[in-house]
């Protein structure tokens, strides 16, 4: 249990998707103009990361990893399919996004109208594939750990985009040098927020 909390906190603050790895920057920069839309996208990311990372964890451990196929028959013990991981992970993500979209549309129209347009965008959000690849690289031991890692990364991304959106709403009233307006200042602010987040480095529960 302690271990899970540790992974959760670490993936939110220390290994933050945006500030430490720059994942999902494209939509982060494009959508963060107002807090309201950022909330929608942020929630969608948390949601999709929380689903795809555990699924890809199962695929990695029961299909792709070296010796993962032994549950079918011991003679597959030295089959190593991990070179297929990119293509399988992205297929899982693209189809999960589609599936999640349909399920939400059916059961919760309000949530759907909030997330609606953002869900398809998420298939190509690097933070989603990044979450799965980091899960593979760091070799988490249990399904629970992988799930918590996925959720934590999503929450970290959520926090980052809300923060930058709030700052961008305010910065509209300040006198930014013309060439720096818009994109330039957003980059520099993100850098400064990243420096602040570095203060969390080394936290261990």
């Amino acid at each position: 249990m302690e271990n899970l909390v540790n992974i959760f906190v670490k993936s939110i603050f220390v290994d933050n998707m945006i500030f430490a790895y720059f994942l999902g920057m494209c939509s982060y920069l494009a959508v963060s103009k107002t807090v309201k839309t950022s909330t929608g996208l942020g929630l969608a990311v948390v949601f999709v990361l929380g689903i795809t990372v555990p699924i890809n964890y199962l695929i990695h451990n029961y299909v792709l990893k070296e010796g993962a196929l032994t549950w079918i028959s011991p003679q597959y013990a030295d089959v190593d399919l991990s070179f297929l991981s990119f293509i399988l992970f992205i297929a899982v993500i693209a189809s999960m996004v589609q599936l999640v979209e349909m399920v939400i549309e059916k059961f919760s129209p309000t949530l759907y109208s909030n997330l609606g347009i953002f869900l398809p965008l998420i298939a190509v959000n690097c933070s989603i594939l990044g979450g799965s690849l980091f899960m593979q690289e760091r070799a988490y031991n249990t399904l629970a750990e992988a799930t918590v890692f996925g959720l934590g990364s999503g929450v970290g991304w959520f926090l980052a985009i809300i923060g930058i959106a709030a700052i961008r709403e305010k910065i509209r009233y300040s006198n930014v040098p013309a060439p720096l307006r818009g994109l330039g200042i957003t980059f520099i602010i993100t850098g400064l927020m990243g420096i602040a987040f570095m203060g969390f480095m080394g936290i261990k529960l």
Binding site: F19, P179, L183, G184
Partner: peptide
């Protein structure tokens, strides 16, 4: 070497280019 400076560097490149 740390991540935040990459962002600031790109920000400055944008600044120079747009200037």
């Amino acid at each position: 070497i740390l991540p935040p400076m990459a962002l600031v560097t790109v920000g400055i490149i944008i600044w120079v280019q747009r200037y």
